[in-house]
Write a protein that binds this DNA or RNA. Structure first.
Lengths: 330, 330
DNA sequence: TTGTAGGCGTTATCAA
DNA sequence: TTGATAACGCCTACAA
């Protein structure tokens, strides 16, 4: 490259970084770039500058639309600011979770967006100590002081369950997520709190724990439908399980909402399209992405104001035709 | 690090790469690693060795479960061989597609797995020229000689449509994908070929073009249901649109298969769970991932045997209760 | 505006 | 087995 143009490496470097060079030299360089198919070696540049203009994104599972939907919005914003993203998933595997976290740090990312599952505080603290900003997505890590963007899961389910109680339901089933997952715990707390606030007795048999996948939504809803007495309403606490639950209801030919009231979770698109239209809790994926990306850019600028920042974004309750009062007295 | 142990950096480097060092030195280094929280700088290493042990993965859209499902399987295999993956999506945006491709190459990935949409042959050729193996996923690029792992889309839909024709259907609707996408073209060709082979007249009004999203599946199926004459059977050519189509059918309370036979696409999980069980074409996501990862590892070993290799993986047709003969004569 | 020279953290070569 | 040293490709004073 230097030989080709007869210029020094320094001059070329300047040109590459937007410095001024004389017209003829300028075009000589441009020609050489074309001919030689030259491209800067980001590794070398990163080695020197200690910046890669890249942020790492670590999520539990690629096939989970909640995760990827957030990531898509994050990417949008970061790209606009010249940052690229390296996305990794750990397939909800604790060992992989550690390894991928390490992998990203070793890739010299400038910052990290991390949706943890089994995450350990010490691992993240080690990263923060290296001056690499980390933002936790959707779930905190116990004992860790760190920026995070969460959803108000408790009030999300509170609002949904309250809707059912107000309409007279007393036997409200809930298809909960794994107790190991923070969001599932919170959503379940919301359920408990409504019962408490409205003095409705808690009945263990009305709680079923799934794994946030379609299958378990189908299976657990089927169980509810065959249960005696059958709950008059069911709240399903994530998207995949909602999908399964709806299918179980179709299969059993149970009429919604006359025989059973139903509230689902996430995915507006599906709720509008199903019949009857589904009442759902909608998480603000776009806002989560936007909020975390914006906060990340701020940290990247070296602005540590308000650390550790915690956002708790509100969900929205969407009315639908899938709920009404109970059809029979308990 | 060198100061801390009193050894030379050369010795330390050897240790890090599995070379033999004397016992006391060995433990001195290990201690220092702990204390200083030392980790190798992959950028520097990559600069020197020209290998990053990382492969780039570029897909059209993160929210597409077909893409992510393949990627998940790919990751599994590559991880086992010590390779990490950098996943990027381009949101089906031609400009982003170019940029992200460049981004990955600039990250010095050792190889590339690429599911193209608007991809240009010249861009990929430039990469291949740099000795970076590229494997095309699911779709070829016109005029490009390159390893690829495809699905036999034509026979996939042929098999499905044939099933309908054999049962006596003559008015078979098809909800096709965007004509710009290779797989959609192929699947449509399969439809045409069956009609030809069985001397069934082609009727333009029985073809509707969606965008591979839930919405359009819902909308186009609704159109079919209100169409006069209504097709006696409909084939939906991808998963998202199948989901929408099923919902449209539920909403219209059309009985399957008595009033309408239906064949969907992908996602076994859903097909089993819907009622009546759905006949579907299943793509071998796991095999696609496995095949491409294995081929990639081979290329990474420097083995160029059979280049350009082309795999055309077979889909499976899964019988379900959603098809029967036509209920009325055309 | 351009060139010189030193250094970023590794690995590889060659002596010791 | 160890150490000194020269790259790897780039950036950045500083000097010309």
């Amino acid at each position: 490259m230097a030989r080709k143009t007869g210029l020094s490496i320094a001059t070329i470097s300047k040109f590459l970084n937007g410095g001024h060079v004389l017209g003829p030299n300028r075009s000589a360089i441009e020609d050489a770039i074309q001919e030689l198919g030259y491209r800067v070696n980001e590794a070398a540049r990163g080695l020197k500058t200690n910046r890669t203009l890249t942020v790492g994104v670590l999520i539990p599972r690629l096939e989970n639309i909640f995760c990827t939907s957030i990531v898509a919005h994050v990417e949008n914003i970061l790209n606009q600011s010249g940052y690229g993203t390296i996305i990794c998933d750990y397939q909800e595997n604790p060992k992989l979770e550690r390894e991928k976290l390490e992998f990203l740090v070793n890739k010299n990312v400038d910052a990290l967006l991390y949706m943890p599952l089994y995450g350990e505080a010490s691992a993240v603290e080690a990263i923060l100590k290296q001056e690499i900003p980390v933002i936790l997505l959707d779930r905190p890590i116990a004992g860790l002081s760190c920026d995070m963007v969460l959803v108000d899961n408790l009030n999300a389910s509170y609002r949904a369950i309250e809707e059912l109680v107000v309409r007279g339901h007393r036997q409200i089933g809930v298809i909960s997520g794994p107790t190991s997952i923070f969001t599932a715990q919170e959503r379940f707390k919301g359920y408990r709190r409504v019962l408490e606030d409205y003095a409705v007795e808690f009945d263990e048999s009305l709680v079923k724990y799934g794994d946030y996948q379609i299958d378990s939504g189908f299976r657990l809803m089927t169980e509810f439908l065959h249960q005696n007495p059958r709950p008059t309403a069911v709240f399903v606490s994530n998207y995949e399980m909602t999908l399964g639950a709806v299918m179980a209801i179709n299969e059993a030919q149970v009429k919604v909402p006359t025989e059973l009231s139903l509230i689902g979770f996430d995915n507006l698109q599906m709720a509008k399209v199903v019949k009857p239209t589904l009442a759902i809790v909608v998480q603000p994926m776009e806002l989560i992405g936007e909020t975390s990306a914006t906060l990340l850019l701020k940290r990247l600028r070296g602005d540590r104001e308000g650390f550790p920042a915690m956002f708790r974004l509100k969900t929205e309750f969407l009315h639908g035709d899938s709920i009404t009062g109970p059809s029979r007295t308990p």
